[in-house]
């Protein structure tokens, strides 16, 4: 895939107030339509980096180029509006995007169908399981119709079976919609399972400590041998980075 860069990060640095440097000299170029996993231990500033890309925060030094349309964001907690049904939650995103009232309903149902939730459209968040809520959140993020989708550990709170299914779901949605996805996780296997590229961030301060490109991305499963092999390799590097903090 050789598109132009969708996100370009140059010599990015971030510190909060007078605190320590959270991100230091991060350089990253993410191509349009690419699926990148940002991986790192706690305190590596993954979420900070994501917030910077999302425009929820400003960098201290350096520059970030993102598409003018901005990015959709999905968080660890689904953060659905509890007083709205699944469909209305998606419709809210459409409404804030400026979609005409008459077109919202059909489009929301279509988006819910994309994540296999057409039957649950009239249910409220508390009637849905954790995995279903995250799928509604995914449909809502898709409703924003932004070229970039940022995901901040969206499946961290789910059980293994559900997470496994959602990996497949996300991969399918990615192939179908051609979105650029930046997926933050602290789960090595998840990164090796999902990404076309895995970017390892070191901790305190966060720097790019390693990169792996995966040539063959279709047909991967969490239990596939190639995923396991890559996980071992990444884990080795990750542990090296963590050990540096002991000194």
């Amino acid at each position: 895939m050789s598109g132009q860069a969708a996100i370009r990060i140059e010599q990015l640095g971030k510190r909060f107030g007078a605190g320590p440097l959270v991100l230091d000299d991060v350089n990253l170029s993410i191509e349009s339509g690419e699926f990148v996993c940002l991986l790192g231990a706690s305190g590596c500033g993954k979420s900070t980096l994501l917030n910077l890309i999302a425009g929820l925060d400003r960098p201290t030094t350096g520059a970030i180029d993102v598409p003018a349309e901005g990015a959709a964001v999905m968080f660890q907690e689904s953060a659905l509006m509890p007083w709205l049904t699944a469909r209305q939650n998606v419709e809210l995103a459409l409404r804030l995007r400026g979609v005409a009232r008459t077109a919202r309903r059909a489009e929301a149902l279509e988006l819910l169908d994309t994540v296999n939730l057409a039957d649950a459209a009239e249910k409220r968040p508390h009637e849905l399981s954790g995995g279903m809520r995250q799928r509604v959140a995914l449909a809502r993020a898709l409703a924003q119709d932004r070229p970039v989708l940022l995901m901040d550990e969206p499946f961290a709170a789910l059980d293994a079976i559900t997470r496994d299914l959602l990996h497949e779901e996300l991969e399918r949605v990615w192939r179908r919609t051609g979105r650029t996805i930046v997926f933050v996780t602290h789960n090595v296997r998840e990164a090796a399972r999902l990404g076309q590229r895995v970017v390892l961030l070191s901790s305190r301060p966060g720097r790019v400590a390693g990169e792996w490109r995966i040539a063959e991305t279709s047909g991967r499963r969490i239990e596939s041998p190639e995923v396991a092999a890559l996980s071992i390799e990444i884990t080795e590097q990750l542990r090296k980075e963590i050990r540096r903090n002991a000194a």
């Binding site: 954790g130 995995g131 299914l165």
Partner: peptide, 9 residues
């Protein structure tokens, strides 16, 4: 997914 959804709700 439909099966899992039924199990979980």
């Amino acid at each position: 997914e439909a099966g899992l959804d039924r199990l979980q709700t």
